[in-house]
């Protein structure tokens, strides 16, 4: 799976949790998940669990803490799936 495919899948998972639709329309690797997309911190837990299910990986809390942008999430998943 290449980075573009991971990005698209990540955005698809994030979409139901996004409160700022305008930011979603212009989403990029630099988009901040909490600040720009306005995903609630509790829902970020659900997002991470969905990442685990969708990519068949495990993401620990230390990993999650480093994820601020969509790009961070894509890079983390890319590294996990090798």
């Amino acid at each position: 799976m290449d980075q573009t495919e991971i990005f698209e899948k990540v955005v698809k998972i994030l979409t139901p949790y996004v409160k700022n639709q305008q930011a979603l329309e212009g989403v990029s690797l630099a988009t901040h998940i909490l600040d720009d997309l306005k995903v609630n911190s509790a829902r970020l837990v659900d997002v991470v669990l969905e990442f685990e299910d969708a990519f068949d990986i495990e993401i620990d809390d230390d990993d999650v803490d480093k994820v601020e942008t969509v790009g961070n999430a894509v890079e983390l998943i890319e590294a996990k799936i090798g």
Partner: peptide, 22 residues
Amino acid sequence: VVDLSDPESSRDARHPRFDHRV
């Protein structure tokens, strides 16, 4: 602060593993 009436707070909105994760 948490709004219990918000759809995000409902049981159905949570991932099945949410409780054990947090």
